[in-house]
Design a binder for these strands. Structure first.
Lengths: 389, 389
DNA sequence: CTGTTAGCGCATTCAG
DNA sequence: CTGAATGCGCTAACAG
């Protein structure tokens, strides 16, 4: 009764009066073999009586495969990632997998180490959430929108950008490091592990893509429809693919509407609340050109920072300047004025990524390894319709 | 070169021309045994050349112990938990442990299953974050504050409370289930695993306690000092220990100041944004008694919901009613008006819990298995000083 | 359908 | 100080 250490299968087998193999088959339900009903019942009964449960390590060892799923995020305390993580956790649980989490910060080496670990661990799959580097993840088959990269300049924002400690590289990788990561993932994949990345494509890996450019373009058109004509963009780091896609999608759509965003009104900054704050503060402080009517921050957290900067400057949103974001972070639902944004179903994205990585059905395009999730424009108080002038 | 499957130790041994045992000792640095320098170098070199890394499952098996740390939260997408998780992840990484995450929702059975899994997995430790049940976690040595439980009534809030789907039990356990959980944890602990709970004591388990009652009392005194005299409390679920401690600490301190909170102004509700919203809406809608001057919500998320309710009712914070919260959730730093709250260092708490669970130094009281973290009152715009009447 | 046996990769006895 | 042998708990051939 008080024998220490967990009960093993062989104890169950002995208790049930069967062989180890039979016990294993009864409890685990081997694929090919089957066990006579009465024997199985006896084994199950013994297992229950002894409060047996299998040793995951031993199973992993014997099977050559774990029931684990690796999840890599930059920062689990960031609501963007924690929402994705919630989706991953839910889907993983449904599949009977345990998730091992790595909150890697801005350290590519850490990501690499974790992927390597996950490979050695023979995890079922690994999911990579978070912004990759720009140069390395291009896909010839999916060129960026028709608007040249040069649509986003950083002249106006260089100073703010440089002034922040935490933005040495905007939270993305050096090219070499990204290459190593992709390679590690490919290796893992070749060895039978599932892989999915979230956000935008990385190499040829399966991806749950967020239609960043399109969402931003939709947003731009909607805002233009509200009467706005002079826009600014807090563009995030210039090397951050998601940030750039959003900024370009936004600027490009305006361009098509015959509404140009001047380079001075597009400022690079960190992909954080403080990045948004600082960049907006810069816009507010300068005298030339004048403050845009509306500033689009490429994510909600930045937008909230920007709104704080506006308040701290003694100005008001939306009276003095309207603000829009991207993501529709749930926790920020109640900021005032309510933030216009592009809703991104992060939790569902986490689930989709999990299913995709595991080779389960993940929607129509899943077999192509490329699932695209659309954002949805949500107009709220931070960008009221502009009266005709 | 392209042999599939990860490299094993014996391959390294062969490559280095030594025995398996020597390779193991060289790479792992066995405690007792030591390896001659040149041999060790040869092994290490071979390992590097072959890009060897150990199989965690095999190590776990041979050692009878994993390098994993289990983390149980109710909902990883809740900023409270994700902040704690960030601290846990950071500390775990520092100790070379991988963290396996369970986001258990409101399902005690799931928590139990996870703790069981973690035990079988022979994880190093498990950390439990999230509200336990009231009746089961009392500690005679630490009675609740001098204010009777009955200080919090639910007459005023029953209706709202009942009307919410997600509040069947406010996110806590049935007594029996909580008992089973505690028992599972004790078992795990007896078998050599480390345990820590976050928030408030559970049985005799090591705990990183948040000084909820005291923080709330400090807040009450500070607000009283600002001139407030009529208070309401959005008290959260009546069975939620953290919620009750905060509510009672608040009410009790006011009592000592000769300022009574009438039962009608204390409403129970879900421990969520919507819970706060609904409860506040109830206060706003009723005619008798009048709206309190200030409403204290027992956490920030609820407070933000409450502020939304105020706005939606066409009233204003703090002009019509002041609002205060608890936790100082980072993501909510920029809500307007800025929220008065009690700052709780969640990330550090996660680290402390990790260290405590692992038996590392976790501050002065760590050896007693009871580390207490103080909150700090932060007065902001949502509770301006009241002009003398 | 069931039982016997051989590893999975590694740490760790025990001999040498 | 090193090497050969044993076993962790389990699954998956392999016989019976």
């Amino acid at each position: 009764m008080s024998s220490d250490g967990p009960i093993t299968l062989s104890q169950v087998a002995r208790e049930a009066g069967v062989s180890l193999a039979t016990a294993s088959r009864a409890i685990n339900g081997s694929a090919t073999r089957t066990v006579r009903a009465d024997l199985r019942e006896r084994v199950l009964e013994a297992a229950r009586r002894l409060d047996y449960s299998p040793d995951p390590s031993a199973q992993a060892m014997a099977r050559g495969r774990t029931a684990a799923l690796g999840l890599v995020v930059h920062d689990i305390s960031d609501p963007y990632f924690s929402a994705i993580a919630a989706g991953v956790a839910a889907a993983a649980e449904r599949e009977g997998l345990i998730v091992t989490l790595a909150s890697t910060g801005l350290r590519p080496a850490r990501e690499l180490a974790f992927v390597e670990l996950v490979r050695r661990q023979r995890a079922r799959a690994v999911i990579l959430a978070g912004g990759r580097l720009l140069p390395d993840d291009g896909d010839p088959a999916h060129p960026s929108p028709a608007h040249p990269r040069s649509a986003v300049r950083h002249e106006g924002g260089t100073q703010e950008y440089r002034s922040r400690d935490d933005v040495p590289n905007g939270g993305t990788h050096g090219v070499a490091e990204a290459g190593a990561l992709v390679q590690a993932l490919e290796t893992f994949r070749r060895s039978g592990g599932g892989v999915a990345v979230v956000g935008q494509a990385v190499g040829e890996l399966p991806v749950v893509e967020i239609a960043n450019a399109q969402g931003a373009a939709d947003l731009a058109r909607a805002l233009h429809g509200l009467g706005y004509r002079r826009f600014g963009v807090l563009a995030g780091p210039l090397v951050h693919r998601t940030a750039v896609d959003r900024a370009e999608g936004f600027v490009g759509a305006l361009h098509e509407l015959g509404c140009e965003v001047v380079p001075e009104d597009v400022v690079a900054c960190a992909f954080t609340r403080d990045g948004g704050y600082t960049a907006m503060a810069g816009l507010l402080a300068r005298t030339e050109p004048a403050l845009p009517e509306l500033v689009f921050a490429v994510n909600d957290v930045m937008a909230v920072g920007a709104m704080a900067a506006v308040r701290d400057a003694g100005r008001r949103v939306p009276d003095d300047v309207a603000v829009a974001g991207f993501d529709d972070i749930h926790t920020l639902r109640d900021v005032t004025p309510a933030l216009t944004t592009v809703h991104v179903p992060l939790e569902r994205i986490g689930e989709l990524a999990t299913r995709l990585a595991l080779g389960l059905d993940a929607g129509e395009d899943a077999d192509t390894g490329r699932v695209t999730v659309q954002g949805e424009v949500v107009l709220r108080e931070s960008t009221p319709p502009l009266p005709p002038r």
